[in-house]
Amino acid sequence: MNSSASRQNGADGAQDPDRQRRLSVLAKAPAETLLSRWAVLRLDPPVDVLRGPESGLVALQGRMGGGGQPFHVGEMSATRVTVRLGSGHVGHALIAGRDARKAKLVAVIDALALDPVHAEAIERKIVAPLEAEAQQADAALRAETAATKVNFFTMVRGED
C-alpha cells in the first residue's frame, strides 16, 4: 500500500479512536435503524466494491475462569466488505451476521466519514444518534434487570 492510499485509507496509525468507535457503533446498530439514519443524509456516492461482501466465520475466544488464558468458545458468522468511493476514500466493514447490505452500508459510511466534507454530518446524523440509542437500549435492559435484584432483609424474632 503506498503512502497516499494509506492516508486515504486512514490506516496510517495503529490507533484511530474515532474510526474505531464509528465502526463499532455502526456494526452494533440494527440494520433497519442504520438504513433509516442513512436515508436522512440523502447521499448516493458512486461506490466501487473492492472486496466482498463475503460471509465467513470469526472464531470466538473467551478466557479460562473469565480472566485467564484464552480458549475457543465457538464461532460466529460475520460479513466483511471493502469499498472505494469516487473520492478515493476506502472504507472497511466487518460486522456480525450475514447481512451483506448492512456490511456494505457500514463500509460506505466509513469511507464517507474519512472525507472532511461529510465527516461532521455522519457523526451528527448517524453515529452519535445510533450510539445514544444503543446506550438507551442498554439502560432499559439494565433497568429491567435491576427490578429483579434481591433486597435481602432479616426477620427479627422475639423482643430483643
Binding site: 490506516a11 490507533q15 470469526v58 460475520a78 471493502t82 472497511h92 466487518l94 460486522i95
Partner: peptide
C-alpha cells in the same frame, strides 16, 4: 461486545454483541 482485529486498519473494532 465481540472485538476483532482488522488487519487493514491495525486496530480492533467491535463487530457485534453476543449473549453468553
Amino acid at each position: 461486545d465481540v472485538e476483532v482485529m482488522m488487519p487493514e486498519l491495525g486496530f480492533a473494532v467491535t463487530i457485534g454483541r453476543i449473549k453468553l
